[in-house]
């Protein structure tokens, strides 16, 4: 294993560079005082201040947050119940297979297909209720639709690690069904539910394609705003915004990883 040819290292660094160099470039440009073009005109934090005062950006950020939180809440509740219902019921084999397929479908289907399917669904449902006109409601519904699968998969895999003997032991120790859930299953399931919710939230923030298709004029999210601004002509505020989002994403990941290691570390008194 130690005798790796040198070009392997070079190829790997090339990969890392391809991943990071554009992000780095934008971060540098966000501190550039030049208004138009990319000539270096000196260091400034103006664009961050302007970004923080920009109504459109703030409203898009608010929409993104609202969308992420609302869709994650729906998906976490529905996905967790789905996982429990599937794992803790002796369904016939054909039903289990079918359910597995159904849950995996949104994960493997290309975004754009999900997007046009949802557009079609909303078009039909709009005939019947104005709630489904393009906007925040359709965005939340759309995101929750594919998030449910991810939550159900994560919670389900956690549920599978809780052995039957745990439930039997609790039952043996006089716990009724409610107590088994509150005192044995949910406490052990909680890390899985939190992980599923975090994943769902990340996917919501990460989504562009589905949002692009189902959003309305009043429900611009941050990715949609950036995409639109590329057409209108970029201002350095967008550099600042992108840098904040990238930094925020990285911070969130580091935080999650840190929480994870802390949870795994042996608690001592």
């Amino acid at each position: 294993m130690s005798r790796l040819p040198r070009w392997i290292g070079w190829a790997s660094w090339l990969g890392v560079v391809i991943l990071y160099i554009p992000l780095l470039a934008v971060a540098i440009l966000s501190f550039n005082s030049t208004r138009y073009g990319q000539q270096w005109g000196g260091f400034t934090l103006d664009w961050y201040a302007k970004m923080a005062a920009n109504e459109a950006i703030l409203s898009a950020a608010w929409n993104s947050l609202l969308l992420g939180v609302a869709s994650t809440l729906i998906a976490t509740v529905a996905g967790t119940l789905l996982a429990i219902g599937l794992h803790r019921t002796p369904w016939p084999r054909w039903f289990q297979r079918g359910s597995d397929l159904a849950i995996n479908l949104p994960v493997v289907t290309p975004d754009i297909i999900l997007a046009i399917a949802l557009v079609g669904a909303f078009a039909v449902l709009r005939e019947w209720s104005a709630v489904f006109k393009p906007g925040l409601v359709t965005l939340i519904i759309a995101h929750a639709t594919f998030q449910i699968s991810f939550v159900a998969l994560v919670v389900g895999s956690r549920l599978a690690t809780i052995g039957r003997d745990q439930v039997e032991a609790a039952r043996d120790l006089y716990a009724n069904t409610g107590q088994i859930w509150l005192r044995v299953l949910l406490p052990q399931l909680m890390p899985g539910i939190i992980a599923g919710a975090l994943l769902a939230f990340t996917i919501s923030l990460d989504d562009f394609v589905v949002s692009f298709f189902v959003s309305g004029p009043d429900s611009t999210t941050l990715p949609l705003l950036i995409y639109a601004s590329v057409r209108r002509g970029v201002t350095p505020e967008i550099h600042a915004l992108s840098t904040v989002i990238v930094a925020g994403t990285m911070l969130a990941i580091i935080l999650t990883a840190w929480l994870q290691t802390r949870r795994d570390a042996t608690p001592k008194d």
Binding site: Q166, E168, A169, Q188
Partner: peptide, 13 residues
Amino acid sequence: VNTVFQSYALFPH
């Protein structure tokens, strides 16, 4: 009736 399980089935949390 109480049981001591082969796996012990202690509650890990």
